[in-house]
């Protein structure tokens, strides 16, 4: 069963790569696009800290570390799932989603992991490098280094769960393009630490719709390991959202009306 999915995933990767390689210019431009994004994101923080000492409880390097963490998540997101969201909105519009429904396998898997972006994967070492650089600067403890990869994976899982849940609304609102833009708004919100937000939105986005947990939980804990409640919150969020997602997705698929050909 797992092996079969692994076999399928390998095919997804290889077909996506074949396709991506046949368009050479976009392949290169995607890399440039991401690098521009990383660069301006980091530069924004740098410029702000030219004029201030602290933001909330954090100094320049700590905030840079946070941003580097979020950029690495973005890199994983761009590589493994991002394209599928846009494809889904197209497939729902054209009725091409029929074929996803027909295949004998988990539809969440075949919807969201279908498209792989090899070009963004080439930026992976850069994203990791930046994270390590700032990790060294803030002097992470050895135990924190060991936990870092685990947190990257957990945060990535929470991020995509949140995004899958948002995307499920495409079954109700056929215009999926708008939903994709909404999804990107939430990404933007999560790209700043939770303490930036006033208390009301902070509570809503931490406890009810936990997008601020994605970055703030692991980084807060890695910086100060006495804050054990953060990783606990992260894991709890993943479990709860897992149930919410599977319920919503099943309901959504039943709502699917299939565009007439």
């Amino acid at each position: 069963m797992m092996r079969n999915y692994w076999e399928i995933y390998k095919k997804f990767v290889s077909t996506s790569t074949t396709m991506a390689m046949s368009f050479r210019l976009p392949f290169v431009l995607l890399i440039v696009m991401d690098l521009c994004f990383y660069f301006t994101s980091l530069l924004t923080i740098d410029f702000i800290f030219n004029h201030i000492q602290h933001m909330g409880p954090w100094n320049r390097d700590q905030l840079m570390f946070f941003m580097a963490f979020m950029l690495l998540l973005d890199n994983l997101h761009m590589t493994f799932v991002s394209e599928s969201f846009w494809e889904l909105s197209m497939m729902l519009k054209t009725g091409q989603f029929d074929y996803v429904v027909l295949r004998p396998m988990n539809t969440l898997f075949s919807t969201f992991f279908r498209f792989f972006r090899p070009s963004t994967m080439l930026n992976f070492p850069i994203a990791v490098g930046v994270l390590i650089h700032y990790g060294l600067k803030i002097g992470l403890a050895p135990s924190a280094w060991a936990l870092l990869p685990v947190f990257v994976i957990l945060s990535f899982i929470l991020l995509i769960q949140v995004e899958f849940i948002i995307t499920t609304s495409m079954f109700w609102v056929i215009d999926g393009l708008g939903i994709n833009f909404l999804r990107m708004q939430f990404q933007k919100l999560a790209r700043w630490p939770n303490f930036v937000y006033a208390s009301m939105p902070r509570r809503v986005f931490t406890l009810i719709f936990p997008i601020l947990v994605i970055g703030s939980a692991p980084v807060s804990f890695l910086i100060d390991q006495s804050k054990w409640y953060w990783p606990l919150g992260l894991v709890t969020s993943i479990i709860v959202l897992g149930f919410v997602l599977s319920f919503l997705w099943t309901t959504g698929i039943r709502r699917y009306e299939s565009a007439s050909s």
Partner: peptide
């Protein structure tokens, strides 16, 4: 954008 054989191989896995 890809030859049919690639799609077939994917379907084989499906």
């Amino acid at each position: 954008d890809i030859p049919a054989m690639d799609s077939f191989l994917l379907l084989q896995k499906y």
